[in-house]
């Protein structure tokens, strides 16, 4: 066992860990580099959402950035509302009185929309999802996962540099 770390040793260690830096840089790239996105032309979308206790149908809406979204909120049983997180948008509909309003999806990402009127005991769980553009978080997470798997295989293929050092 060596008690003192000499200069050549340090260089050796760094040399043996080059793959670690590659991994780090790849991870940073995956997290921060803007992915090339195919920007679809903005269109007008007319969507009908049925609200019943305690769900929205459909519960997931996927649109492209810049789309003008016209929502019809149809309540099926009691008074329900729909408010989108991150957007200044709210609708409240009574049964038999469909409410319509429009907004432009200019923010990309995944947003929750919730019932905004207390509609019973499970009201807090009445949530839907609005996805504007591709789900970048999901893509990045998948790539990071793949990177982690690749790194695991790489480390298995080569013995650990630290172990080699201890052995000689």
């Amino acid at each position: 066992m060596k008690l003192q770390v000499t200069g050549s040793d340090l260089i050796n260690r760094i040399k043996n860990k080059w793959w670690f830096f590659v991994l780090l840089i790849a991870a940073v790239l995956i997290i921060f580099v803007p992915l090339p996105q195919a920007q679809a032309a903005a269109v007008d979308r007319h969507l009908r959402i049925e609200a019943s206790m305690y769900q929205f149908t459909p519960g997931v809406i996927k649109v492209n950035r810049g789309d003008k979204i016209t929502l019809d909120l149809v309540s099926m049983d009691v008074v329900h509302g729909l408010s989108v997180d991150g957007y200044d948008f709210e609708l409240i509909a009574d049964p038999g009185q469909t409410q319509t309003a429009a907004f432009i999806a200019e923010k990309t990402g995944v947003f929750r929309f919730r019932c905004s009127v207390a509609c019973g005991n499970l009201h807090p769980f009445m949530i839907g999802k609005l996805q504007v553009g591709p789900n970048l978080m999901f893509i990045r997470a998948m790539l990071l996962g793949l990177l982690a798997m690749a790194a695991a295989f790489w480390s298995l293929r080569k013995p650990f540099p630290n172990l080699k050092e201890v052995n000689h």
């Binding site: 149809v74 309540s75 099926m76 049983d77 009574d94 049964p95 038999g96 009185q97 469909t98």
Partner: peptide, 21 residues
């Protein structure tokens, strides 16, 4: 009509309101 009847008679009067689907 909208407040009291449309939930059963339908908003267009076709008898297909949300309560009687």
């Amino acid at each position: 009509y909208a407040e009291n009847c449309a939930a059963c008679h339908g908003e267009t009067g076709e008898g297909d309101g949300v309560m009687v689907r």
